[in-house]
């Protein structure tokens, strides 16, 4: 565990907490894409299938449980909670997320480190995580009216990805035989997807204005 990895995990955790805060206290999920949240729930479910069979550390297991629990509970809130579900931008959140899942599954079947059930699903989760933010970014673009919490949520998620890249660079130079092209390329693609959002986020922060995306 290095400082970049820890910083990445903590920003990831913070992003989830910000989203839960918005849902729990304001009882609103306005501007949040259910499609993206469902994709994250699938990402964690397929990646952490090994939670019972491979033990790394108490930290890892605890974090896995937190990410699994929070992603599924966010989906539950947005779909079934009587107040929260009414604030969901159903008509705007129309990204067909099934069209992301199939190519990711095919790619995982073709390109992986090992052809085993767990490894293919692990790889699928990497590919899917890379593109899971897309419905959220499309929704932002459509509604254009972004509240602070939603903006912070996406900013923190992007920060998490940035720190993970630093973590890989650090591990590459400090650990022998640490080479994971699939993880790195998927992670890089994922981080690049945030670039545009980051640009406008910093612009609004610099000018001390409310975040607004161009049409």
């Amino acid at each position: 565990m290095n400082i970049f990895r820890l910083a990445g995990d903590m920003t990831h955790l913070a992003s989830v907490l910000v989203l839960l805060l918005k849902i729990h206290t304001i009882k609103s999920c306005a501007g949040v894409s259910l499609k993206t949240q469902e994709l994250y729930a699938i990402v964690f479910a397929t990646r952490y299938l090994d939670i019972l069979t491979s033990f790394v550390s108490i930290y890892n297991t605890l974090m896995k449980l937190i990410f699994l629990g929070s992603s599924f509970s966010i989906v539950w809130y947005m779909k079934y909670h009587k107040t929260v579900r009414r604030t969901y931008d159903r008509d705007q959140d129309t990204f067909r997320h099934w069209f992301l899942m199939l190519p990711c599954l095919l790619l995982a079947l073709l390109i992986h480190e090992k052809f085993t059930f767990f490894e293919v699903l692990w790889t699928f989760s990497l590919y899917l995580e890379a593109v899971a933010i897309l419905p959220q970014l499309v929704l932002l673009q459509r509604t254009r009216n972004i509240d602070n919490l939603t903006g912070q949520y996406i900013f923190l998620l992007g920060g998490y990805r940035g720190f993970y890249i630093l973590n890989w660079i650090y591990r590459y130079f400090t650990e022998p035989h640490y080479v994971h092209w699939i993880t790195w390329i998927a992670g890089l693609v994922q981080t690049l997807l945030y670039a545009d959002f980051f640009y406008y986020y910093f612009l609004s922060w610099k000018n001390n204005k409310k975040l607004q995306l161009p049409a």
């Binding site: 790394v56 550390s57 973590n167 035989h177």
Partner: peptide, 10 residues
Amino acid sequence: VTKQSSHDEL
């Protein structure tokens, strides 16, 4: 030396 795993990451 065995290959370092990325599976110890989240």
